[in-house]
Design a protein around this nucleic acid. Structure first.
Lengths: 208, 208
DNA sequence: GTTAAACTTCGATGAACATCGAAGGAGTGA
DNA sequence: TCACTCCTTCGATGTTCATCGAAGTTTAAC
């Protein structure tokens, strides 16, 4: 996480409305409408803030009928609570990874799905990081997470399973604990340091 | 610390230039000129940022000849490092305290020194909070800290000592560990919680 | 007093952005 | 298909604020 990223993240949290939103989401997940009512703000304003919060990863969103349910990203906070645990997926060592990500991602969205295998692997690994290791996901949850990146969730899901990045049994998915085929991947320790101060911050700020 | 204060503090840190300044000050104290050179910015810009950082208490300033030396407020960071310690001065329980502070303070500055004893006590206790308990101060340091509030530092210093808020021996001052005469003061526990997340944040952000 | 260095204040400029109303999807159910 | 709800996008508005040059202030040294 470089300077710009940190500034971006801080700027995102440094707003009264968004702090109040985080406080509400810390109690329970809520829809946009609920947040708008609770804060006395218009729907466009809420939409604006939620887009920012989701973009930096503090909030997760799942479609639910015509509504969209927003929830605090528990993974970050849990990582902060157990600062010794290494709860993140091992880093990606492919030197072209960053370039691929830059080319194919537009924020959280995927501009397109790469045709070439190497770039597709980069994109899939990047998507894999949105899943919490150890947690089990229903197929709908997997779809919801992937839909933040691209509409063809079925293809992405199939690819993730084919590459063994996601394991599946019945309708339940989870991150493969020892991901295969990750080029030159030496599983270096990434203690939850980065997530730790973020989570600590969010906890502290939200708790008041 | 209410919502607005937290937002204000976050907004203060959420700036690339100020984060770089904090990073530099984490290494060693520096003057405004040094910071301007290191960052390639104009003197007015540095002055602007330093005023903000000092106002929120992350940075301390001491005059040094024609220069002003800026240093990270070690107290906050130390409080974060030992999260169990209660390193802050006991809170002020006088119900009129907040009103007095609002009336007589304009940011860190004192509009005037209250003539009435009650209000003056409030102001003095508020000033006392700018000192780190346990730390020993040279008279020049005491003056420097008080000068941020008002030019008549001699009067303020004498009052602080007269009220036994500051103890003195030789030329050395320190916060009286058991402050007397603090109306209805039941020394409630204020674990360094607030400072903790701030310090944790600064540490994390600065360390990268 | 005078000069020089370091810093602050003032005013202006431009960029970022929170908010809103109006219009435009998108999902749900008749 | 139609209506309804929820949400997003667009365009406009007003505010905040980082930055700079110019001018003012403070401190030290002679």
């Amino acid at each position: 996480m470089d300077l710009d990223a940190r500034v971006h993240l801080l700027k995102t949290i440094a707003d009264a409305t968004r702090l109040r939103i985080l406080g509400l989401l810390a109690e329970e997940p809520r829809s946009g409408r609920q947040l708008a009512e609770a804060l006395g703000l218009g729907a466009p304003t809420i939409s604006h803030h939620m887009a920012r919060l989701v973009e930096v990863g503090i909030v997760r969103v799942t479609p639910d009928g015509t509504r969209r349910l927003y929830a605090l990203n528990a993974g970050l906070l849990d990582a902060a609570a157990a600062p010794a645990a290494t709860a993140t997926v091992a880093p990606i060592a492919d030197p072209d990874h960053a370039r691929h990500v830059r080319i194919f991602f537009d924020g959280p969205r995927l501009r397109s799905i790469p045709a070439k295998r190497k770039a597709r692997v980069s994109v899939l690994l990047e998507l894999l990081r949105r899943f919490e290791p150890g947690r089990r996901y229903a197929e709908a949850e997997v779809n919801a997470l992937l839909r933040e990146a691209h509409d063809d969730v079925a293809f992405l899901r199939r690819e993730l399973v084919d590459y063994r990045y996601l394991a599946r049994e019945g309708g339940v998915y989870w991150v493969n604990p020892d991901v295969p085929d990750r080029d030159a991947n030496e599983a270096q320790e990434v203690p939850a340091g980065e997530a730790a101060w973020l989570g600590q911050l969010v906890r502290g700020v939200v708790a008041g």
